[in-house]
Design a protein around this nucleic acid. Structure first.
Lengths: 339, 339
DNA sequence: CTGAAAGCGCTTACAG
DNA sequence: CTGAAAGCGCTTACAG
């Protein structure tokens, strides 16, 4: 029941261990006939090279790390991460890289995980999510020399490679669309203010509203949960001069907002237009279906994984722009009712 | 910039590599004073033992594998897996085990992954999800001798360890509750029929409905997506003698069902009661909030991880029962309107 | 084209 | 309590 080693293959093939290694890795050094015989025997006895041994010799772990720093409940409820992971995974497994996942409590723990992973040679590189302003992780990764790709930006990535999407452009497009429908009072229920992409969106929102001459373009900071989204919506809709359109930084808060509007007797989209950022299938399950800003998240993950493998392979750290989110109008947006 | 090895620590401490190893691993063989000096030096120079080397000697990978066999879109939309993973992860990282994740297309690919992982010594054990009737993976895992814990059952787990929850009991409790409210026509929108837990639920549903003398207790098989859930609901509600209560096998289908009811002009819960299996935060975001069958999924994952570590450690393969899902009545269930 | 050997960085009997 | 050495299973120069 012992798992076969390269020595077992060598013995059965009547060659040296070195020859087996060359044959298996497609290196020159063995004749075509010998190579085929060796491969056939390896397959026959179910040989798989011991990763630890290979890693110890070759110095690559053939694994990539992903540390997620969000509370368990928001991790579960947001389709974003699972979609991202499935895209990352598809790309990695095609090149027989493993994905090592770790959930961490905070940035300090995350940095400790990076140090340990790299020190242990557990991973060859990491994918970094949820970029913050003045992110502590960026200098640490640079100092360690740990190959990394930041999923986010632009900006704030130091010398690290990154894949980013132009959230500012998507936001401007959305606000212009709402303004074209006739909305003059637009509010936003935002994500965690510490995250860089929240800041980018907030700034773009303020700027475009000013440019269009829209009244106080307020952003209420939230934590992506339905509870906070509902509370923020309730507050916005109770205010004098309540908004006629609200833009939410994720789908869960948008759905919560829709519920609040209905509970307060406001018609959507008649009295209130709603736009969700992140176009998951959830947006189409509610009534009315939500107008949403979406893009291909698995492809984004695959893109990031591909770039990380390139960086691990020695490519210079580039900043690659991914697709910009696009607006899909559905039943939750319309011109505001006159009055 | 080279990462320090045990030899560096030994040199600075003026001891042998063996002594460093003993000190680091809490083995006897070094004096207390020497141990402390060695640990201090290791910390000071940022030493982390190379995993590959340790694994090659000690024969353990200190990693656990999880292969997920679901299409990317249902993976993303269902909170279940991410919650499970976060629970698994919490338990593993507390014991400094890594989680290796792989998304696979089908059972064949999954079995291939297990063979490879085990052959490569990439993992010390695996967690198995989505158990099927006559599951191919069970005999393969037994044959390989790969430590495994099946998340599911009861039954169908062969000689493998498992953690399971009594879905049949939860289902019976739910149907009895609906019957007590006065419902006589109850239907069910089920999950993938190939999954064992779907079969267990279907059988329990048929049995309890017969016992209570309820009319044709139909189960419509679906794939957990909102689209199929909506379609099934539309069909059920269009039939003569339409049900007054529907039980859904996941929250996404339940929410889709709620939408369909509203689109068809039926009041929930007046004309139709709805119960969702899986009580995620989504259930409380919609109007009315959904009565749901829930339990602590992260704890379930932690439980499974704990058991897997025990099996890896040599404990006999047990079948451990986890908490049974409990019903939380909310606004989507009520006595049926007379008429 | 092939074989014998060193070495990756640990762990663990085995002597002192 | 400590040191020297073998060995885990690969990869890769280095000789033939």
């Amino acid at each position: 029941m012992k798992r076969p080693t390269i020595a077992d293959v060598a013995r059965r093939a009547g060659v040296s261990k070195g020859a087996v290694s060359y044959a298996l890795n497609g290196q020159p050094g063995v004749s075509q006939a010998t190579r085929e015989r060796i491969l056939a025997i390896a397959t026959e006895i179910g040989f798989n090279p011991n990763r630890a041994a290979r890693s110890l010799s070759g110095a690559t772990a053939d694994a990539v790390g992903l540390a997620l720093c969000r509370p368990a409940r928001t991790l579960g409820i947001e389709p974003f991460f699972m979609e991202l992971i499935s895209g990352v995974e598809a790309e990695l497994s095609a090149r027989s890289y493993a994905l090592t996942l770790q959930v961490v409590a905070d940035q300090e723990a995350e940095v400790a995980v990076y140090r340990r992973w790299w020190g242990e040679r557990r991973v060859d590189g990491v994918l970094v999510c949820d970029l913050r302003t003045d992110d502590r992780r960026v200098p640490v990764l640079a100092e360690l020399g740990l190959p990394a790709v930041v999923i986010g930006g632009p900006g704030g990535t130091g010398g690290l490679a990154s894949v980013w999407s132009d959230d500012a452009a998507a936001l401007v497009e959305t606000v212009e669309y709402l303004a074209a429908l006739g909305h003059r009072r637009i509010a936003r229920v935002g994500g965690l203010p510490a995250l860089l992409h929240t800041e980018i969106r907030t700034e773009a929102f303020t700027r475009v509203c000013r440019r269009l001459g829209l009244a106080d373009a307020v952003t209420v900071p939230c934590d992506y949960t339905g509870e906070e989204g509902a509370r923020a919506t309730r507050r916005l809709l109770s205010s004098a001069g309540r908004p006629t359109a609200v833009l939410y930084d994720n789908d869960v808060m948008a759905i919560a907002g829709l519920s609040v509007a209905q509970e307060m007797g406001l018609a959507v989209p008649g009295d209130l237009s709603i736009v969700a950022w992140d176009d998951s299938p959830l947006c189409q399950l509610v009534h009315p279906p939500l107008t949403a800003l979406g893009r291909d998240i698995p492809a984004y993950g695959a893109h990031a994984a591909r770039q990380l493998l390139a960086v691990i392979g020695g490519s210079p750290a580039g900043r690659v722009q991914d697709e910009t989110a696009h607006l899909t109008p559905r039943g939750s947006t319309a011109p505001p009712r006159v009055g």
